[in-house]
Each structure stands twice: as C-alpha cells, then as structure tokens.
Simulated scan of single mutants.
Amino acid sequence: MLILFVFFLFTSILLLCVLLRHRPVIGLFIIAIDIVVCFLIYIYGYKFIDSTARSRKTAIIEQKILKTSGALAVDFSITNTSKRDFKECKITAKIFKDKLPEDDFLTEYKNKFLPYRKRSREIKELKKEQTQNQRISFENFTYENNYTLRLSSECF
C-alpha cells in the first residue's frame, strides 16, 4: 500500500508539472521536490509501519572473545512485542571499528558506516510475547582495538 501511495503521489505531481509546461523552471523545481518527498515518504513510512505493525525488541546479553578458538560469541535475546506471531525473523549483528587516533577523515567515516564484520541468524516461528535467546559467533576474530557491536532485526 505504501508503494502504491508513493507511486500515486509521484504521478499526480508529475501531471501537475505537465500543466506547467509554459513555466519549465517551476516545473523542474516541483519535480525535484517531488522526487525528494516521495523518497522520504517511502523511507520513513516503511520505518513507521515496521515499528508499529511488527514491533520487537532485541538486546545484547553478553559478548565474549573465546581465547581457545579466537571467536567472538554474541548472546542476544529477541522479544516479539507485536500483536501477531512472526513466521520468520532475521537478526544481523554488525561489528564497527571505533575511531583510532591515527585515522584520517575518510577512514573515520568509512569505519562509522561500513561494518568490519557482519553475520546473520534466522529464527523460525516467534510467537507473540515470546522471547528467544540466541547466539551469533564470529570465527577468527583477531581485531585487537575497540569495536562497537550493533544488532538489527527484520521480522515477517
């Protein structure tokens, strides 16, 4: 429904710009604004629908580096707080490098937005008000500096 709404909004504004064919600067300006607004409506509309219709909570319980195997083990929990059961959930753990003193401007922003390592886990059948504890492990984790761990989830 959201995609249909964005498509309808975009085409209706585009038709309005056809009526303004004698004023091309105003028409191009309205088309540029229309593209930006439709993009923002889609992004924030999806986030709003996801947070209200498919609400859930994820939390990191514990993270530890196993000295024997050199793996990073992340224990987390996921709780279904929506009104419906989930058939499938995908939880993604991402590791980001923290800022180091010798990092330049580009490396700092690259480390902030691009993960160093990424692993996913899928869970089947998560009933409403149910909590499951799971583990994701990163093998051969040899990063010696500070890092930040973030969890994201998508459930349907």
Rank of each mutant, 00 (worst) to 15 (best):
R117H: 00
F138G: 02
N133H: 05
D104Y: 15
K124F: 05
K112E: 10
T131S: 06
K97E: 12
E129Q: 13
S137R: 04
K128T: 11
K128C: 00
F138V: 10
N133E: 12
E102Y: 14
R119W: 02
L114Q: 02
K118Y: 02
L106D: 09
K118A: 05
T107M: 11
D104G: 15
P101Q: 00
D103K: 06
R135T: 15
I136A: 06
Q132D: 07
E139V: 08
R117M: 01
L100C: 03
P115G: 04
R117A: 09
K110S: 10
T107S: 12
P101K: 01
K97M: 10
F113A: 04
S137A: 14
Q134R: 13
K128A: 04
D98M: 14
E125N: 13
E139Q: 12
E102V: 07
K110Y: 14
Y109E: 04
K112V: 04
P115N: 08
T131W: 00
Q134V: 08
K110A: 07
T131Q: 06
F138P: 05
F113H: 14
D103R: 08
K127P: 06
E108I: 01
E102K: 15
F113L: 13
R121V: 09
E122R: 10
S120R: 08
E122I: 12
D104Q: 12
R121W: 03
Y116K: 00
F138R: 05
T131Y: 05
Y109N: 11
L106A: 10
R121I: 11
S137K: 09
